[in-house]
Design a protein around this nucleic acid. Sequence first.
DNA 1: TCGAATAACGCAAAATAACGCATAATATTA
DNA 2: TAATATTATGCGTTATTTTGCGTTATTCGA
Lengths: 249, 249
Amino acid sequence: MLKAERHNYIKTKLAEQHRVSTIELALDLGISEDSIRRDLNKLHEKGALEKVYGGAIPITEKNKSVFDIVITNEDKKKKIGYKALSLLHDGQVIIMSGGTTNLVFSKLIPTMLKATIYTYSLPIAMQLSQYPNIDLIFIGGKMQKNAMVTIGIDVLQVLSKIKADICFMGVSSIDIKQGLTEEGYEVSVVKKAMIESSDKVIAMFTSDKLNTKKAHVVCDLSKLDTIVTDLDPEEIKLEEFKKSGVSII
Amino acid sequence: MLKAERHNYIKTKLAEQHRVSTIELALDLGISEDSIRRDLNKLHEKGALEKVYGGAIPITEKNKSVFDIVITNEDKKKKIGYKALSLLHDGQVIIMSGGTTNLVFSKLIPTMLKATIYTYSLPIAMQLSQYPNIDLIFIGGKMQKNAMVTIGIDVLQVLSKIKADICFMGVSSIDIKQGLTEEGYEVSVVKKAMIESSDKVIAMFTSDKLNTKKAHVVCDLSKLDTIVTDLDPEEIKLEEFKKSGVSII
DNA sequence: TCGAATAACGCAAAATAACGCATAATATTA
DNA sequence: TAATATTATGCGTTATTTTGCGTTATTCGA
């Protein structure tokens, strides 16, 4: 195993678990604690983490820029993004929800795409602002802090006046019976509004969201036109969804 | 096997597995490690991969993310920011314009400040979204690409309905006769609206903006309450401004 | 303050890379 | 086609990097 691989492993584990221990890492990777310590020191120097007695923790918020957005499962999300590209066409009016899956997707959009895109996510708006031929409209309102999206009545009002061709929706939880659900009430309301304003609804999510539920219902599966996941469309896990009439790519 | 073929093989394998090892490649391709190393060096020079001890990994895509905002004269802007902190109080309703000076200022705001802040700048909103006690409202509208701010009628409409205590305004150009001016018409209109909606107007700019003009007028000096620069308030360059009745810190 | 856990240090062995060079393979030219 | 220039390859050697271990220093919690 290359050193660079180890470094990636450590960074990923740290992002997921918010802490790593020297001993665990040595065991995980099958090398001596000394080497792990050397790795941690290197990563510390590079500012990728903060070393503490017994292991390491994520960098303290002081130096951590809000602009460094951690994307988990980036590979899977890229897979989803590439598949979703086939749904894009010049001239579309698009609504994009927040979430890192959509953020990754945004980075993959062809440079010259001509489209009008509405979004209420700060990171996605920043990303999309680099495309010369995209008319970008940010839907303002009260900011939901952690997710960096706007919510509330202002958002609903704007959405109610839009008629979009397609909406790309990041999904927190999806279940064959409950349909789409969200942790936060306000976000669930916004997503409902998105769906009402769009001719087509695309749900994008990594396979770990499958068959999970949260408190607030967004819609049932019948509202969805297409599901995009990192899995093969023929995968058994998706069988049930296919039966419900949603197209799966 | 041609060298070009080998290079392709390496690139493909790297794309698939996110790592290649020198030894493995030598085995795969049935040639000496030396040649593999030479290949890797070539590919490294061409920027196709990153060479590491024991093999190679994909190039780190740190290439100019939209989230890497370049801040010129950061030191001066910090100076300005620290001075401006004295104008902040709990409970204020604040409007913040865009610009890197305000972005730097945003980073310096005390963690626990209680306030309501309106902004129409994406980077500033992202920065402010980390403060737990700030009610943050993003003013939506059409995005001005390069500056990452919203502009247009929607912004004006929202601004017209706000009554803020104070507005922190980044300044493109300031001149004793012309007052504040902007390069873009639309931004100048938005700034006019900001001023109308605020009890107090704070102009913040680095000294290189002094005595410069742009095409579109925002307001004359009489509209300003306070000027914050990196200079000493007693500096001769600021003499004229002081005479016009603006307070300078 | 002590004892256990963890980290840092120095070092030698192992792994990997770079260098120089002779030779083989390939391309170029007459 | 033969002669020649150019490039690529493998090998022996020498540098560099990485690693694990023994030892010593530091940190942590009781």
